Structures are given as structure tokens and as C-alpha cells.
Amino acid sequence: MHVVYLHGFLSSPQSEKAQLTQAYVAEHYPQISLITPQIPNTIDAVPAVLHKIIEPIVASGEPLRLIGSSMGGFLSNWLIEQFGGRAVLINPAVAPYNLMQDYLGKHTNPYSGEEFYVTADHIEQLRAMEPAVIAEPAAYKVLLQQGDETLDYRLAEARYSGGDITVEAGGDHSFVDFADHLEDIFTFLFATNPVAPIAQ
């Protein structure tokens, strides 16, 4: 059994939420394989990397289970609409091709130190990747905080209408007190194909 955690733009598997998720799985679901890939910094390289991870899981007949933060939330949406399954989205990016207009040019990933450029072509690739519709809103659990300084939570609230949406006052883009939601996150991911946590 697998769960795939997808981090956001300018982030890493070493991010706080990814690390908290790894620790939670190690304690409560050691029978699960949590995959936390390093997502390429530029979108042109992302599909091949993610498909290499996702396609064997789907081919095995196992339901796809994703956790995606920010840009990782957008990518989770993109994958679920291709392959089916369930996803938990944390302050997910909506229409990131609009957001990325402000990021054109050179950047350095603060975790890896890798330098890269965001180009107009990358923005158009993001636009082409966006699923036109949400086929099954119930496949998504969406965690939003109104204090998100990077994204307008109302865009995600509208896009994933009909899903399992939690909106909290305050907070920020990192999603304050994320660890408090991990039990509910994994309950949702395994609701249709139950996996019991290890008794403590």
C-alpha cells in the first residue's frame, strides 16, 4: 500500500509538513509505503517524474492516494483526474498559471540550492495541465486556512465545491497545526479501502 506526498513550489521532501507526515506514518501506519518524491523545480520535467511513480501503483490495481500541498495540490488534482483515487489537498494552488506570472525569472530552491528559471513556456504548460472539470468532488478532502498569505482560499473552496472542505480562520500558507489533521487525513484516504492504524 502506498501514499504519495507531493510538496509545493520551492519546497522539498524535507519540508515540515512532509516530515510530519513521514513521522505519523512511521508511528501509526508502518505497513504503508509513504513516497515523498523531490518534484522538479520546473514544470516541464514534472509529468515524467510523477508518472514513473504513479503508473506502477495504478497498474497493480491499488487505489491512488495522494497528499498535496500548494502546487502539490494542483498536481494531485491533475493526477486524480487522470487515474482516479483520493487526494487530500492542503492550501492547494488553483490556476497556478496566473500565480506564476509573478515568479518569472531566476529562483533558487532553498532546500536543494538548485538554481532554475521560470519561463512563459512553463506557465503555458501549467495552463494545459489544469483539469477542465472535477469529475468526482467527493474524491477530495481540502484543508484551507483563511490567513493564507500566498493563495486566496476562496478559489479552492469554489473549485472543490462538493468535496470534503475544511476552512479554518487565521493560519497561513504553511497550514498552521497541520499535524492535528493527520488522523483525519489518513482516515479519508483509506475510507473506501480501509487500512487500520497500528494500535498504540
Rank of each mutant, 00 (worst) to 15 (best):
A191R: 15
D184E: 15
V176T: 12
H51A: 10
F188P: 10
E27Q: 15
V46E: 08
A199G: 02
P56N: 08
F190C: 03
Y153D: 08
R86W: 06
H122M: 11
K17S: 10
R159M: 07
T192K: 13
I185C: 10
K141I: 02
E130A: 08
P92H: 05
E62N: 04
D172S: 13
I35S: 04
F74P: 05
N193F: 03
H2Q: 08
L99G: 04
L6A: 09
E183Y: 10
L75S: 09
M1N: 08
I57K: 03
L104R: 13
H122F: 02
T150K: 00
V3P: 04
L34N: 11
S11H: 06
D152I: 03
P110G: 07
E16R: 14
F186S: 10
L104P: 14
I53M: 00
E149K: 01
A93E: 09
N98P: 00
S69F: 02
P37G: 05
V49L: 00
H107S: 09
R159I: 08
L34G: 09
G61K: 06
F83V: 05
L144P: 02
S70Y: 07
K141Y: 03
G84Q: 01
A26K: 12
A120C: 01
M71H: 02
L89D: 09
Q31I: 06
E124S: 06
A128E: 13
N77R: 12
T108S: 08
Q14K: 14
F116Q: 01
S70H: 01
P30H: 01
I39F: 07
